[in-house]
Amino acid sequence: MKAILQRVLSASVTVDKEVVSSIGKGLLVFAAVAPGDTEKEAESLASKVLKMKLWDDEAGARWKKNVQDINGEVLCVSQFTLLAKTSKGNKPDFHGAMGGEEANGLYHHFFEKVQEGYMTDRVKNGKFQAMMEVALVNDGPVTLELVAGPKEGPNTKPNRT
């Protein structure tokens, strides 16, 4: 599994002109499921999301607090395009992303583990397989890539564009 974490002051997801989720200060998490990923990867990624230290402490020391420490919120958004292969031609190849119901189930397992690891009401979700409008006010900006899974393989090697 792969995720892009963005530290935000606010973020929201709109589907069909209706806001389905919104958060204040916290994390926007774009997450993608690859073929071969299991619940183990989903759980590992959920733990990393919640433990990543992205905020300063009260004394100004950098990178000391995680989203739970600041009582922030988390907005998870499924985004299979994170696993696109872009090394050949100008059209992205999405064969590196798991499809259908299997991806839906594993993504939702990830989302539920983020909720269980924190507080259910502080963790929001986009809408799986929907055309979403994602709005955010990036804080910093701070943007990180997280990967949970095998150390080597087609879905964990960096894209060369």
Results as ranks from 00 to 15, higher is better:
Ile4Leu: 15
Ile4Gly: 03
Leu5Ser: 06
Val8Arg: 03
Ala11Gly: 12
Ser12Leu: 07
Ser12Gln: 09
Val13Gln: 02
Val13Ile: 06
Thr14Pro: 10
Lys17Thr: 14
Lys17Cys: 12
Val20Leu: 04
Val20Arg: 07
Gly24Asp: 08
Gly26Glu: 06
Phe30Lys: 02
Ala31Ile: 04
Ala31Glu: 05
Ala31Thr: 11
Ala32Gln: 07
Pro35Ser: 13
Pro35Val: 15
Thr38Ser: 15
Thr38Pro: 06
Lys40Tyr: 08
Lys40Leu: 08
Glu41Ser: 00
Glu41Arg: 00
Ala42Asp: 06
Glu43Met: 01
Ala46Ile: 02
Ser47Gly: 12
Lys48Ile: 01
Val49Leu: 10
Val49Glu: 00
Leu50Pro: 07
Lys53Gln: 07
Trp55Asn: 11
Asp56Phe: 01
Asp56Val: 01
Glu58Ser: 11
Gly60Ile: 03
Arg62Cys: 04
Arg62His: 05
Arg62Gly: 02
Lys65Cys: 07
Lys65Asp: 05
Lys65Tyr: 12
Val67Arg: 02
Gln68Asn: 14
Asp69Met: 08
Ile70Leu: 01
Gly72Trp: 03
Glu73Tyr: 04
Cys76Phe: 01
Cys76Leu: 06
Cys76Trp: 00
Ser78His: 06
Leu83Gly: 15
Thr86Ala: 08
Ser87Asp: 14
Asn90Arg: 13
Asn90Glu: 12
Pro92Thr: 08
Asp93Ala: 15
Asp93Pro: 11
Asp93Ile: 08
His95Gly: 12
Gly96Val: 12
Gly99Gln: 15
Gly99Tyr: 07
Asn104Thr: 10
Gly105Leu: 12
Leu106Glu: 14
Leu106Thr: 08
His109Ser: 10
Phe110His: 07
Lys113Tyr: 04
Gln115His: 05
Gln115Phe: 03
Gln115Asp: 04
Tyr118Leu: 11
Asp121Cys: 09
Val123Ser: 03
Lys124Thr: 04
Asn125Val: 01
Ala130His: 05
Met131Gln: 12
Met131Glu: 15
Met132Asp: 05
Ala135Thr: 09
Ala135Leu: 06
Leu136Val: 06
Val137Ile: 15
Asn138Ile: 09
Asn138Glu: 07
Val142Gln: 05
Val147Tyr: 14
Pro150Thr: 09
Pro150Cys: 10
Lys151Ile: 10
Glu152His: 14
Gly153Gln: 10
Gly153Ile: 09
Pro154Thr: 09
Pro154Lys: 11
Asn155Gly: 10
Asn155Glu: 09
Asn159Thr: 13
Thr161Cys: 05
